[in-house]
Amino acid sequence: MTDDALADFERRVFSFDDVAKTVYTAGSGPAVIVMAEMPGISPDVARFARWVRGAGFTVHMPSLFGSDGAYPRAAEGRAVMQRACMSAEFRAFGGGGASPVTTWLRALAAQAHRECGGVGVGAIGMCFTGNFALSMVLEPSVLAPVLSQTALPLDDPAAVESDPAELQAVRDRLERDNLSVLAYRFEGDRFCTAQRFAAYAEALGDRFVGRVLPDEAANPDPPPFFRDVVGVPHSVVTAHLIDEEGQPTRAARDEILDFFHRRLKPGVGRGG
């Protein structure tokens, strides 16, 4: 696989509270924020964003780290991960609560809703950004949060990135507005563990809908970063997805697209 030029996306800059970041947009319809996994907006992440666009949504894909469109090689990916772990925007390790960048992401969701209209906004976070979609629930426009292979905090596999106060506020919002959170992981993933899913379930109750895929459902030949650095089945809808009929990862992708459709296009047929 080669780098992806992202030529079919519009490159914008969104600024909030003196923080400016590039956002790649494409499509029409209600907005969905697609947050890349480590080490950045890879061709597989862009492929997922195109699926979201093709399902009838306006994708907003923020550039949070890494080289946009780059094929995820091992050495470069390690360097991106090390820089992100040291950045003040992210809290890769336990004890600090939600990453500060989530404030900017909530503002992006609000702006996307103003631009795209509809009843609200969807959001999916993956790996390093997985829990960001949960923090974004505190923005009233976010109606469809998806957590894929949440990896933070890196130093405590039984913890979640949100602190107790945020988790309570999220649960209150989910219950008040009758919302749910979809989440995905592979059974043997050492970055997103069964203990972490149990912590989410304890904090959010039946508002948390967790899906666990068998390890053998993962693409056996992912890009070098995922083969050599991650080293386990991990990326449910990107690097480890097998795009074939009957595959659990494709079914997970379709469930996510249906979730966005039900929440963001209520009363509209799936083909509409």
Results as ranks from 00 to 15, higher is better:
Val230His: 00
Phe57Asn: 01
Leu264Tyr: 03
Gly95Asn: 03
Ala199Gln: 11
Ile124Ala: 02
Asp8Trp: 06
Gly205Arg: 03
Ile242His: 01
Pro72Gly: 01
Glu37Arg: 12
Ser148Phe: 07
Ala31Glu: 05
His240Gly: 04
Lys21Ser: 01
Asp4Pro: 10
Gly188Phe: 07
Arg73Phe: 07
Phe132Leu: 14
Ala109Tyr: 04
Gly56Phe: 09
Arg83Gly: 11
Gly118Gln: 00
Glu202Lys: 15
Phe128His: 09
Leu143Thr: 00
Arg196Cys: 02
Thr58Gln: 09
Leu182Glu: 12
Ser148His: 04
Trp104Cys: 00
Glu161Val: 03
Ala251Arg: 11
Met38His: 12
Gly29His: 00
Val237Asn: 09
Gln247Leu: 01
Ala199Trp: 00
Gln247Asn: 13
Phe65Leu: 11
Asp68Lys: 02
Arg106Gly: 04
Phe9Tyr: 13
Leu213Arg: 08
Ala251Gly: 08
Val80Ile: 12
Ala88Leu: 13
Arg91Cys: 10
Thr22Tyr: 11
Ile33Pro: 03
Asp156Arg: 15
Pro72Arg: 06
Leu174Asp: 01
Pro43Asp: 06
Ala159Arg: 07
His60Val: 00
Ala31Gln: 08
Arg250Ala: 10
Gln247Ile: 00
Val181Phe: 04
Ala98Ile: 06
Ala194Asn: 08
Ala20His: 04
Met35Ala: 07
Gly54His: 11
Arg114Pro: 03
Phe93Lys: 07
Phe132Met: 15
Arg73Met: 04
Glu76Phe: 10
Arg171Gly: 05
Gly130Lys: 09
Val137Ala: 08
Leu105Thr: 10
Gly188Asp: 15
Pro214Asn: 06
Asp4Ala: 02
Asp189Leu: 02
Pro145Asp: 06
Ala107Tyr: 06
Gln168Phe: 09
Arg173Lys: 10
Arg250His: 01
Arg173Phe: 01
Phe191Arg: 13
Phe48Ala: 11
Leu264Val: 01
Thr249Asp: 05
Glu255Gly: 11
Gly267Pro: 02
Phe197Trp: 11
Asn178Val: 13
His60Pro: 05
Asp172Phe: 07
Pro223Val: 00
Val236Thr: 04
His234Met: 04
Phe65Ala: 09
Gln111Gly: 05
Leu108His: 04
Gly97Ile: 02
Cys192Asn: 12
Phe16Leu: 00
Pro233Lys: 00
Phe197Gly: 14
Arg47His: 14
Asn219Arg: 06
Val13Asn: 12
Leu204Met: 04
Ser87Asn: 02
Tyr71His: 14
Thr102Asn: 12
Phe9Asn: 01
Leu134Trp: 03
Phe132Trp: 15
Ala252Phe: 06
Ser162Cys: 14
Val52Gly: 08
Arg270Val: 13
Val45Asp: 10
Gly122Phe: 05
Glu37Trp: 11
Phe197Val: 03
Phe208Thr: 08
Ser15Arg: 15
Phe93Thr: 09
Ala112His: 01
Gly205Pro: 07
Ala203Arg: 10
Gly40His: 05
Glu37Leu: 04
Asp254Pro: 08
Ser235His: 11
Asp258Gly: 14
Gly188His: 12
Leu64Pro: 04
Glu202Ala: 15
His234Pro: 06
Thr103Ile: 13
Arg91Tyr: 12
Ser42Cys: 05
Ala251Ile: 07
Arg12Ile: 13
Arg114Asp: 10
Ala74Cys: 08
Gly205Ile: 09
Pro157Thr: 10
Asp206Gly: 09
Asp18Glu: 13
Phe132His: 15
